[in-house]
């Protein structure tokens, strides 16, 4: 932590390490995969990545408070399953089903928040537990089967376009704006940073710190609900394992985006972290590298980038 009075770092040094690595990666792919550096591919990448983007916009808020949210993937799956069940089996109107998805997400978040604030369970265990619970219900509720038979109009949310751009992209921009505004322009945002940076400071003001902490998890749950809407619309079905492993990607993206420690992190940084993962995956795809080798490359590169950032930017202390 830089504490010397009035020291403004030079402009170049203010750029996070991950941005340099990201630029290097873009140059690399542009050089070796001609199809990478095209507008079409960029739109494609952002559309496919919209789900991760939306999830991360919730995860970052939890991460800033010092919590680790490992349930978003499973919660998204569950919300999608419930939504599809409402549409295909209960034949509920679309707006109700969409609302249901958000409610399921929010309730799972409330459960997380309850575990963390009222039962004093460390956040990553609590959310790991919720992950198990949500994933279990998703699998059990339809005997492990995919739910088909959704109304065609739901596809608009996953595959449609609005003002020439894909709807999922708009929704991910909406999610970003939500988190960006919340973190930067509202008292709640200040409290989120206070929860992570100096919880005692917030407690001393007499504000109910535990309630704000709970709300943070609810917010992450709502984002998972929104992501569920997009992914269900895109696939035109709900798969009971669709979100498997997404929480780990989200966690990586958020840390890559500069949230090395409690009280740190920004919405914009998170966008960079998400882009990093998306571009890495997309670039390898465009280069025609087989999936299993991609998986072998992505993990170590992500971890390498995180360790490098932590070492360069000195986030290693607690």
């Amino acid at each position: 932590m830089q504490m010397s009075p009035g020291s403004r770092k030079t402009l170049l040094r203010q750029v996070p390490t991950v941005v340099w690595v990201l630029l290097g990666m873009i140059l690399f792919f542009a050089r070796f995969a001609p199809a990478f550096f095209t507008l079409k591919n960029a739109v494609n990448l952002l559309t496919q990545g919209s789900i991760l983007m939306i999830l991360c916009m919730g995860v970052i808020v939890v991460k800033i408070t010092g919590g680790i949210e490992l349930s978003v993937g499973a919660v998204m799956t569950l919300a999608g399953m419930v939504m599809a069940w409402a549409l295909a089996y209960a034949k509920l109107p679309i707006p109700v089903a969409l609302l249901l998805s958000l409610i399921v997400g929010g309730l799972c978040g409330l459960l997380n928040g309850f575990f963390v604030t009222k039962m004093d369970i460390p956040s990553f265990i609590a959310t790991l537990g919720t992950q198990g619970i949500a994933a279990g219900i998703s699998l059990g509720m339809n005997n492990g089967n995919v739910i088909w038979g959704l109304p065609a109009s739901i596809g608009y949310l996953g595959n449609g376009t609005f003002l020439h751009l894909p709807v999922p992209m708009w929704l991910s921009v909406l999610a970003f704006l939500c988190s960006f505004t919340l973190l930067n322009f509202t008292p709640f945002g200040v409290y989120v940073y206070a929860l992570g940076g100096n919880e005692q400071a917030l407690v001393l003001t007499g504000k109910p710190a535990w309630w704000y902490k709970t709300l943070v998890y609810v917010y992450a749950g709502l984002m998972a609900g929104l992501a569920a809407i997009v992914i269900t619309g895109r696939n035109m079905c709900a798969q009971p394992t669709v979100g498997l492993g997404m929480e780990f990607e989200a966690f990586s993206a958020v840390v890559l985006g500069g949230s090395f420690a409690a009280g740190r992190g920004t919405a914009i940084g998170t966008v960079i972290g998400v882009l990093f993962i998306l571009i890495l995956r997309n670039g390898l795809n465009v280069m025609g590298i087989p999936t299993y080798i991609q998986l072998a490359i992505i993990g170590p590169v992500l971890i390498g980038a995180i360790v490098l950032s932590v070492l360069v930017e000195g986030g290693a202390q607690k």
């Binding site: 940073y193 940076g197 400071a201």
Partner: peptide, 12 residues
Amino acid sequence: FTLVPYRNVAEN
């Protein structure tokens, strides 16, 4: 201190 490190002076 009871300050929030990553927020600005006014917010604190």
